[in-house]
């Protein structure tokens, strides 16, 4: 296994070749906020929270979706990045309908977590109040589009881990929404195995088990990684 070395916020770190910048950042004992990324799923680089500066590079790079290269010098927490991250979180809140006090994920929500992490105490952008619906057609689970941040974790876990590919994204721009099957009510999609992986990995209160009410959701984002590792390394016990 060949190894590359790079520098993260002044710390030297060595990682296996082929590692992502995110892995390098973690190896250095540091962290960046992430939302769309989930260990165990292929990265998409959509939420832009993990962007980092690379010395000598013109553009910011998404740490989750960029391969680390030898000799890179990256910075993860400059004033510029802090400003952009805060704005991104404000945009997330303003584009959906988030009323945390009445949310199934209140207290267990990764969007709330990143808001805290970036110090987002209010949105300078006016809330948009989009018209969105709730799909409660499934026997066990529901999808509340008002709280969906389009991270596509559900799409990916269902496709890449469960192999059912129930979810997709429809429309474009601010009209984007997650659809089940061929834009059917979720409960009518025969491909759904009711495994609940999408609910496990959803970072917000968008996907939840029907029996959960306010602040009762118990997500399990680690499952994607556990399953992937188990299958790839034939290790079924933790």
């Amino acid at each position: 296994m060949s190894v590359i070395t790079l520098q993260v916020d002044g710390r030297d770190v060595a990682v296996p070749a082929g590692s992502t910048l995110l892995q390098a950042i973690r190896a250095a004992g540091l962290s960046v906020p992430t939302l769309c990324h989930l260990d165990g799923l292929d990265p998409v680089g959509a939420c832009r929270l993990c962007l980092v500066e690379v010395e000598g590079g013109q553009r910011l790079l998404p740490a989750c979706a960029s391969e680390a290269s030898e000799g890179q010098v990256i910075r993860t927490d400059t004033a510029q990045l802090q400003g952009y991250r805060r704005m991104a979180v404000e945009l997330f809140f303003a584009e959906g309908n988030h009323v945390c006090a009445f949310c199934v994920a209140n207290g267990q929500c990764e969007l709330q977590d990143v808001a805290v992490a970036v110090g987002m105490d209010h949105s300078r952008f006016p809330y948009q109040y989009p018209q969105r619906s709730v799909d409660a057609s499934h026997r066990h689970f529901s999808l509340d589009h008002n709280r969906c941040i389009l991270c596509t974790r559900c799409v990916r876990v269902c496709d890449q881990i469960e192999g059912a590919h129930v979810w997709d994204v429809a429309e474009r721009g601010s009209d984007c929404r997650i659809v089940a099957g061929l834009d059917q009510p979720w409960g009518e999609v025969e491909a759904c195995t009711s495994c609940g992986k999408c609910v496990d990995v959803c970072p917000t209160g968008a996907l939840y088990a029907n029996e959960d009410t306010t602040a009762e959701k118990h997500p399990h984002p680690e499952r994607a990684h556990q399953l992937r590792r188990a299958r790839e390394h034939q290790q079924w016990l933790r």
Partner: peptide, 21 residues
């Protein structure tokens, strides 16, 4: 741009909407 954004990433999907506003 608001109409044509693919909606994948948040700065473009939601940022252009706020810029328009």
């Amino acid at each position: 741009s608001v109409n044509e954004s693919c909606g994948k990433c948040v700065p473009c999907r939601a940022g252009t909407v706020q810029l328009l506003a």
